[in-house]
Structure formats: structure tokens, C-alpha cells
Design a binder for these strands. Structure first.
Length: 675
DNA sequence: ATTAATCCAGTTTTT
DNA sequence: CTGGATTAAT
């Protein structure tokens, strides 16, 4: 039945014999239907669900496809197909076969930085070493490009002037890797590396057919996973012209070399476009022709009807543009869900959101970064992490650093003390410390200071007894000479909270418990006070109320999220792997070009088409290319089904900058030279 | 050496 | 509005 919904081209692809099949599917040619059709074909021809692996670029995409398969074959059967992003699939496998703790990218970044900052560079040369941030990004790019040489060699090749630092770089990275392995921490890249490592050793392929969506955006590391899977049959779907992830190592040579790599490869091309009007497709073709062609492309317009041509609106000022677009949307009479505003840089989103709000137009933005970035949310998740994994160093350090007089160093010393006192289990270290172990190793300092330290340690046992509870009184970690009254009270609250963690550690129970603890409440109080401080140093009571309200809202949002999970580990990982899956609210869609990939809307507005911003000149000089920017523009245009509105502003009043129109507006013929 | 406070710049795209 | 860097204080 599903195959009969496909056109001839799609059906040919979907029913291709097992082997190495590449499907060139341009924008709007029914790529999803073809993949679903392929799965249907497989299931009808002797494959069982567990023979099939479906790799997509987002988890949302795989959920949609599996749901469509479920409509045909039943949900219970469809859910046995392994499906998701490379990362999600890798993670699921690793969780079954090893111990790993997935960490927020930012977390490991902090860890890396702390190692990096201890290094001493030779600054006599003229070349300053890269910042920890930049080095970390470069390393990630190195991993994703699956180079066969060492990082030091790689970096020297790419940036010869950095050669003198490469040995130190390599050494820090080795230390970083060792530390990650020790704590079983994994970042996104590690998921892929570890997965590849595990499956390489297998004697029998895990799957009979692997389907890979958005093949043009796979990077060499992901491609090496496709190799390591040794699947007897591949079904790769992609479009050269929509490759927009070069910054993440995506390499278009992977898709263009497919036919050379596999002698038995078959290429299918889908050329019937069902999505967009002729006007829109003509514009898209006109743009993409400027890029070098790898596969011929002649899109056939299927959509019939009388549609308006793409429109360019010029504004004098940035905010006038946003307000103008908002008014345009208000008067367009379309349901807001059918409308998308697409921009090159996320920095455009705030202004657009504000302008829409002025007109009371609801809007939704993808994965509000701000939510998982908020200190209070991260704190709650850190507490969950350290309950889940009582040797999670990062989570302990972040949490304990909130104490007055306790910074990263002392927090780390406390963690290490608890770790040793509990023989590797910090919770045991808290409530059943090994009496034979001293909390803090004596530091090899000069004797005078050493005596001074001992003096405090002798005193410490009785130091805080008068105001701390039984659970905590005379705990060995109090021996730390730098912990004083506030810190002790803080630690006491921490102990109280952990001690009373509900025995049923469901995510929602735990979140509720944290929210009710005085430990968390006190920190929120300080956070709110900080946020309510005016420039003169006074605390504005109104601002304080607002800040507390906002914290409460975020806490209850996290509680709502936690109710969907019955397992603490699953909850924590979902908060990391899928943190930007959930878009909040409803209404007009606000999307970056990258985020718009794979989506379609009746009306599309592409804003801020100024030279420098789109194309992003800064990036072109760094790592990107004008061709990639052009593909981005092509992707943005081809999201539109019926109406396409392009706009730019010639001036930004706030930044006091003048802009000239994007080169793409000239290329598209909407502007002529000299205008 | 470590933490706390203050001031200043700046903002790419994703799993 | 946040992160980073600088500076002051313990």
C-alpha cells in the first residue's frame, strides 16, 4: 500500500535491491516518503524490524518516520526498528554494553579549560597559543574529521605557525582523554568514537540494512561508523546542495565519492518537487546554479496553482524591518503555524520575537538554550547527577562551589575527601566515612604553614558542633582549615538534603525533594538577590520578586519534564541528548537556517539579508565558504511552499552600522547592480 | 593561592 | 545579559 503512494522514481529507489544505494533527493521531492517506503519494502521482503537501522539528523525526524511506519505496520512492530541520530543510536548501544556518563558539552569544556590553564606556554615566539575554547573546538573538528594522524601533526599541518605549541596541545588532550576515561565521562564525540570502537570488534554485522538520511551532512567520523557497521546494504539519502554543516566536519566529498567507493553502487535521483511553487523553485535554481554542479539537477515543478512571486522588502533600519515583518505576518491571514521566519544568525531572533510580541503574535523558538543554561536548572540537574552517580566529580564541584568561601578548589578537595572516605562512593563518604582515613592529605608546604594547618585540624572537630545537625556534626571534611561558619552551614544543608533523598528515586520525586530542600532554596535566594541588584548596589524588591518567580517557573518546568521519565538515568540523559528537541509554545516559527532543515511552511520570511550577516563574512574567512553560504540560502528558500518574502535593513541604529544588501539578492535577480 | 567583586566586551551554525 | 578578565581581599 505505501509503495503505491510513491511516484515511479521514488518507488524505484524504495525497492532497489540490497547493495549500496545512493538517493539524490532534492528539496521537496518526497524524501521522507521514500525512506518510509523503503522500510516498508524491506519489511515486506523478509526483513524483521531489528535488521534495520535508520540514522537521521535529528531525533524528531526519526520519530516522525517511525510513526509513519507504525501507521502501516503497527506501532509495536515499528518501534523495534533502531532509529535516531548517530549520537542517540551510539548512546543507546553503549548504555547497554558499558558504563558511560554523558555530560553537557559545556561541562567537559570547563574540565578541559581547567587542565589547559595549568600549562605553561613558551611565549617568547610571536605566535600566541590558542585559547582553551578555540583549541577545544579545533580538537572536536579534528575528531570529527577522523584524521589518521595525531592531533599535533594535524594542527601543525593546518596551522604551521602553531607548531611550537603542538606538543603541549597534544599533551593536554591526552590528559583530558585520560580523565574522561577515568570518570567514564563522554561528550558527543566520545559517543561516536566509543560506538565505533565497540562495533568494529563484532564478528557479525548488527544490521542487514542501514538507512542514512541527510547523507550530505555526515562527517568523516560518522562515515567511519557507517563503514564499521559493515552492513550488507546501505540506503543513503541526501542532496549535495543542502550540505550546510561543514563547520562540524561535514564533508561533501563523502556523498560525491559514493559511486567511486562502492563498485556496485546504484544512484537514484528524485526530481519531482511537490513542495514549492514554480516561482520559488526558479529562484532556488537560479541561486544554486552559481555553485559547481556535482550531480545534474533539473527539478520538475509539480505544484499547480496561481501563486505570488517571491517578494523583496527593503527597510531603512533593523528594527523597522522586524516590526514591518511582524505587521506583514499579522495582515497575512495565515494560521501562524504555517509561517516561519528564518535567519542566518540566532542573534536576529530576539529582536524578531520582541516585535512579534508587540503585536501579540505568538511565536515559538527552537530549544530555548536559556532554559538549560540557567544556573538554577543546571544546579538541579547537577544534584540529580550526583545522586545518580555518587562519584560524579563535576556535579559535586559545581554544586559545592555555591557555598560561601567555597570555590572550585576547595570544592574539589571536599569531593576528593568524600571520595576517599567512602572508598569511591561519595555518599558513603558522607554518611559512613571510613574512620581509618584522614579527610585531607597534608600538603607538602613549608613547616611553619604545616604547623598552622595542624592547629586547625585539631580544633576543627569541635568547631561547628553547636549549630549543625547530628548527621553532619564532627564529620571529617570539616577539618578543612578554610571552611568556616557559613561554609559549614551550607555543607550541613547539603548533607541534610542528600540524606533525605526519597527512597524511590524517580526523577519527579527527586526534583520535588530538591525544590523543597533548604539547600536549594537558599541558593535560589542568593541567585535572586544577585539578579535584583541595581547599579547602586541596592536590592530592588520588585526585581527580586520577578527573579524568584522566574526561578520557580523554571523549576516547575523541569518538574513537568521529569514526569515523563521513570528512570533517573534516562531523565538525565534525555536532558542532555534531547535538550533542544522540545520547542516551547505555538505560533510563528522562529528558526535559524540550520534548524529549518527538513521543515516546510506555507509562508517563509528570510530576514537580515545583508552582506556580512548573510552571507556571514566572518565565517567565510574562518572555516566556511561562499558556496556553503549559498547552500544555506538555498535551503532557506526551499522551505517555502507558497509565499517567500525576503528582507533586509540598510542600517542598524543600535550598533550604528550601515549595511549593503546581500550578494544573494543580486544573484537572485531581485536587485540589480547599482540599486 | 583562592575567592569575591567589579567592570567590560560581544554574540555561528548542531548533535 | 553573560562570560572573561582584572583587581581587591582573605
Amino acid at each position: 500500500m505505501p509503495l503505491s503512494n510513491l511516484n515511479q522514481e521514488q518507488a524505484n529507489a524504495a525497492s532497489a535491491p540490497s547493495g549500496h544505494n545512493l538517493i539524490i533527493a532534492s528539496a521537496g521531492t518526497g524524501k521522507t516518503s521514500t525512506i518510509v517506503g523503503r522500510i516498508a519494502h524491506l519489511l515486506r521482503n523478509g526483513f524483521v524490524p531489528s535488521d534495520i537501522l535508520l540514522l537521521t539528523f535529528t531525533n524528531k525526524a526519526s520519530n516522525e518516520m517511525i510513526a509513519r511506519v507504525g501507521k502501516i505496520f503497527g506501532e509495536s512492530l515499528a518501534k523495534n526498528i533502531e532509529a535516531g541520530t548517530f549520537h542517540a543510536v551510539a548512546y543507546r548501544y553503549l548504555q547497554k554494553h558499558s558504563t558511560i556518563h554523558l555530560k553537557q558539552p559545556k561541562e567537559l569544556h570547563i574540565l578541559f579549560k581547567s587542565l589547559y590553564e595549568k600549562r605553561i606556554f613558551n611565549l617568547s615566539g610571536s605566535n600566541a597559543p590558542y585559547s582553551a575554547q578555540y583549541l577545544y573546538d579545533l580538537y572536536s573538528l579534528f575528531v570529527n574529521s577522523a584524521a589518521h594522524c595525531s592531533f599535533g601533526t594535524w594542527i601543525t599541518e593546518k596551522y604551521p605557525q602553531q607548531e611550537s605549541h603542538s606538543a603541549i596541545y597534544e599533551d593536554v588532550i591526552e590528559e583530558f582523554k585520560a580523565l574522561k576515561a577515568l570518570h567514564h565521562y563522554a561528550d558527543y564525540n566520545d559517543l561516536l568514537l566509543l560506538y565505533r570502537q565497540s562495533i568494529e570488534k563484532l564478528e557479525k554485522p548488527l544490521f542487514k540494512e542501514v538507512l542514512c538520511d541527510e547523507y550530505q551532512d555526515t562527517n568523516p567520523l560518522q562515515d567511519s561508523i557507517l563503514d564499521a557497521l559493515h552492513a550488507p546494504s546501505l540506503f543513503c539519502v541526501g542532496d549535495y546542495d543542502q550540505s550546510i554543516y561543514a563547520f562540524n566536519g561535514a564533508d561533501i566529498r563523502i556523498i560525491s565519492n559514493f559511486t567511486n567507493k562502492y563498485a556496485d553502487s546504484q544512484v537514484f535521483t528524485l526530481s519531482k518537487n511537490y513542495r514549492s511553487s514554480a516561482h520559488i523553485l526558479n529562484l532556488a535554481n537560479k541561486i544554486i546554479e552559481k555553485n559547481e554542479r556535482i550531480y545534474p539537477k533539473n527539478l520538475e515543478v509539480i505544484k499547480q496553482g496561481d501563486f505570488s512571486p517571491p517578494k523583496l522588502i527593503q527597510y531603512d533600519e533593523l528594527f523597522l524591518q522586524y516590526q514591518g515583518i511582524a505587521r506583514h505576518i499579522a495582515s497575512s491571514q495565515l494560521p501562524y503555524e504555517e509561517v516561519a521566519i528564518i535567519f542566518r544568525n540566532n542573534s536576529s531572533a530576539d529582536g524578531i520575537e520582541a516585535s512579534l510580541r508587540e503585536l501579540k503574535i505568538p511565536s515559538k523558538r527552537k530549544g530555548s538554550m536559556s532554559f538549560f543554561d540557567a544556573k538554577e536548572v543546571r544546579l538541579m540537574l547537577d544534584i540529580c547527577s550526583l545522586v545518580y552517580n555518587p562519584r560524579d566529580m563535576m556535579a559535586y564541584i559545581h554544586t559545592l562551589s555555591y557555598g560561601k568561601g567555597i570555590g572550585n578548589s576547595i570544592a574539589k578537595e571536599i569531593y576528593e575527601a568524600l571520595f576517599r572516605l567512602g572508598d569511591g562512593d561519595c555518599k558513603k563518604g558522607m554518611f559512613a566515612p571510613n574512620p581509618d582515613i584522614t579527610a585531607y592529605e597534608k600538603k607538602a608546604k613549608n613547616t611553619q604553614l604545616g604547623l598552622f594547618d595542624d592547629f586547625f585540624i585539631l580544633e576543627s572537630q569541635a568547631r561547628f558542633d553547636t549549630f549543625v545537625s547530628d548527621i553532619f556534626a564532627s564529620h571529617p571534611i570539616l577539618a578543612h582549615p578554610k571552611i568556616h561558619k557559613d561554609g559549614a552551614v551550607f555543607l550541613n544543608d547539603f548533607f541534610e538534603m542528600i540524606y533525605h533523598v526519597p527512597s524511590v528515586r524517580s526523577p519527579k520525586n527527586l526534583i520535588t525533594h530538591i525544590m523543597q530542600s533548604s539547600f536549594f532554596k537558599n541558593i535560589c535566594f542568593t541567585l535572586a538577590t544577585q539578579r535584583a541588584r541595581r547599579k547602586d548596589g541596592e536590592v530592588d524588591s520588585q526585581l527580586f520578586e520577578n527573579a524568584q518567580e522566574s526561578i520557580k517557573r523554571k523549576a516547575s518546568l523541569l518538574y513537568d519534564l521529569s514526569r515523563n521519565y521513570d528512570d533517573l538515568g534516562k531523565f538525565l540523559n534525555a536532558m542532555i541528548l534531547g535538550s533542544n528537541e522540545a520547542s516551547e509554545g505555538s505560533g510563528v516559527n522562529l528558526l535559524s537556517v540550520h534548524a529549518s532543515k527538513g521543515l516546510e511552511f506555507k509562508s517563509v520570511y528570510i530576514v537580515d539579508l545583508m552582506d556580512g550577516r548573510f552571507p556571514n563574512r566572518k565565517l567565510i574567512t574562518k572555516s566556511g565558504s561562499l558556496e556553503e553560504e549559498r547552500r544555506l540560502f538555498y535551503v532557506a528558500i526551499t522551505r517555502a511552499k507558497e509565499n517567500l518574502i525576503l528582507s533586509f535593513a540598510s542600517r542598524d541604529m543600535v550598533k550604528n552600522v550601515n549595511y549593503s544588501p546581500s550578494i544573494f539578492l543580486y544573484e537572485s535577480g531581485l536587485l540589480n547592480e547599482g540599486e
